[in-house]
Design a protein around this nucleic acid. Structure first.
Length: 484
RNA sequence: GCCCCCAUCGUCUAGGGGACUAGGACGUGGCCCUUUCAAGGCCAAAACUGGGAUUCGAAUUCCCAUGGGGGCACCA
């Protein structure tokens, strides 16, 4: 079997969304599984839609997930260039070949006329398709237009009847009647190719062995098949992978909220969690296994296990999986990943401090960015909260004050707060002495120390906060409640 | 409007004629643990879109319907 060569071919029109990257992941996994090559090709043939940092967004997305490529615009390779705008001569050359073979023709229709034509077709209830006016021009008519120097495009001369079939290793046999296929523009008037021409020429020239792409491309496969046939090239195996949908079951778009993989990275989704989750969108290994390392995915990924039905992107499950991966990290590893998020939020601290904090938060994190709202009370100077929060359920002001003063006394008797176990024991004793439920006693203390009713474990928080800060906060709480 | 694709719990999915009282996971509900919230453990509810056909036997095969989605650019 010849070498597997698969490509991810995005256009630099914005940040790749999870659907695109999921497809790239399948490419990557197949390449690694087979020991083949994963190729990155930039399809920048639409100057109008291009975004300035488009390339960086693509590279950043792939790097985040560790989908490293073997050939690409930045590193080159034996079949470059890997940016279609650098390959324009190739496309004109192959277009000429098509024209010579009678498989394509020049079209001089103006955009205005085409729009007019479409409007009329719509009015008549027909489907909108180029009416092929220029396809049957006499040599004299064509010569006249050339003399006028009219702008021209090149169109594919689709057979008037018959049908075109593509064998797809995911869907089986796909067939579309030629009469339903448009005479697609192959070369635009600005000399750039359209996707249809470029993808066929490049896939062939770059010796792509398997084409994996979103199933929204199914309707245009006849154009590609026809091109392969016109050139006399062998058609590589194609697989149209299921799309990734939003919760409303519609194609993913910006109005679904965060959809670009970069956004997920910036919110603190671990690369390994994202990778695992994405792999399960349209692919499954068996009826049980849910968690896969990169190495396992590479080993177990096969094309025949790719599904056909579109998959809804489920944030809930992603959150769960991210939590699983977060909990698997060591304190040191997690601290390192957390630090940038804390710094970013202005919670200045150092790696050592974060590492000491990690045990308190690790199982409370869905994503790394959660650390900010969870841990800020430890690092902030002054707490801001409503003193009425101190008085919990089944408590009154007087009892709360007693509880706080008692806790204060107990804590003051310790010179260091390092011994959580002893402190807790003494506080429990104190609570018992007051005949309070632990929930009542510790509830008040919790608000005094953390400023909220929900917090990480109290004893651990007190230890990290330290003697001085803790006592000061209790003091503040007592005064605040007294004067409220 | 025309063409195409898809169809198992709310979601991701296993299943490829009898092993299905249809399995797992997320989410949901309950219980346990517990000074809050989590995490963890246990339990529960929850699906084969409908109708024909083939067959001794269909979630699994074939038709039709319905539903959902996608495509119909000098965009990819």
């Amino acid at each position: 079997m010849s070498e597997v060569r698969v490509r991810f071919a995005p256009s630099p029109t914005g940040a790749p969304h999870v659907g695109n990257i999921r497809t790239a992941l399948f490419d990557y996994l197949w390449a690694r599984h087979t020991g083949g090559k994963f190729i990155l090709r930039i399809e920048d043939t639409d100057q109008a839609r291009e975004v300035e940092n488009g390339l960086d967004l693509i590279l950043g997305s792939l790097r985040y997930l560790g989908l490293n490529w073997d050939e690409g615009p930045d590193i080159g390779g034996p079949y470059g260039p890997y940016r279609q705008s650098d390959r324009l001569q190739l496309y004109t050359q192959y277009t000429q070949e098509l024209i010579d073979k009678g498989a394509a023709y020049y079209c001089y229709c103006t955009p205005e006329r085409l729009e007019e034509m479409r409007k009329e077709q719509l009015a008549r209830g027909e489907s909108t398709r180029y009416d092929r006016r220029c396809r049957f021009l006499t040599p004299a008519e064509r010569a006249a237009r050339e003399r006028e120097g009219l702008p021209r495009v090149v169109r594919l001369a689709v057979p008037l009847d018959g049908e075109t079939t593509l064998h797809d290793f995911i869907h089986g046999s796909l067939t579309i009647a030629n009469r339903d296929v448009d005479d697609q523009v192959l070369l635009k008037s600005d000399g750039f190719p359209t996707y249809h021409l470029a993808v066929v020429v490049d896939d062939h020239l770059m010796k792509i062995s398997h084409v994996l792409r979103g199933d929204d491309w199914i309707p245009s496969f006849p154009k590609h098949v026809l091109l392969y046939q016109a050139f006399g090239w062998e058609i590589p195996p194609h697989g149209h992978v299921p799309n990734v949908l939003g919760p409303d079951k519609k194609k993913l778009s910006k109005r679904h909220g965060a959809t670009s993989v970069i956004q997920f990275r910036d919110e603190g989704y671990l690369s390994e969690a994202m990778l695992n989750f994405l792999a399960l969108l349209g692919w499954a290994y068996d009826d049980k296994t849910e968690l896969f390392t990169r190495e396992q995915l590479i080993e177990l990924f096969t094309l025949d296990k790719i599904g056909r039905a579109p998959a809804v992107f489920d944030r809930n499950k992603l959150d769960w999986m991210n939590g699983v991966y977060i909990r698997e990290l060591s304190d040191a590893q997690l601290a390192e990943r957390l630090l940038p998020f804390m710094m970013g939020a202005g919670l200045v601290t150092d790696l050592g401090t974060v590492q000491r904090m990690v045990p308190l938060f690790r199982e409370r994190l869905k994503k790394l960015s959660d650390i900010v709202s969870l841990a800020d009370f430890l690092l902030v100077q002054d707490l801001e909260y409503d003193p009425h929060l101190l008085v919990g359920p089944k408590m009154d002001k007087a009892t709360t004050l007693t509880a706080l003063r008692t806790a204060q006394e107990v804590l003051e008797s310790f010179s260091s707060f390092e011994d959580e176990t002893r402190i807790e024991a003494e506080l429990r004793t104190a609570s018992d002495r007051l005949s309070l439920k632990y929930a009542q006693f510790f509830g008040a203390l919790r608000v005094a120390v953390t400023g909220r009713t929900v917090s990480p474990p109290l004893m651990g928080s007190i230890r990290l906060l330290g003697r001085e800060k803790t006592l000061w906060r209790i003091d503040w709480a007592i005064h605040a409640l007294e004067t409220s």
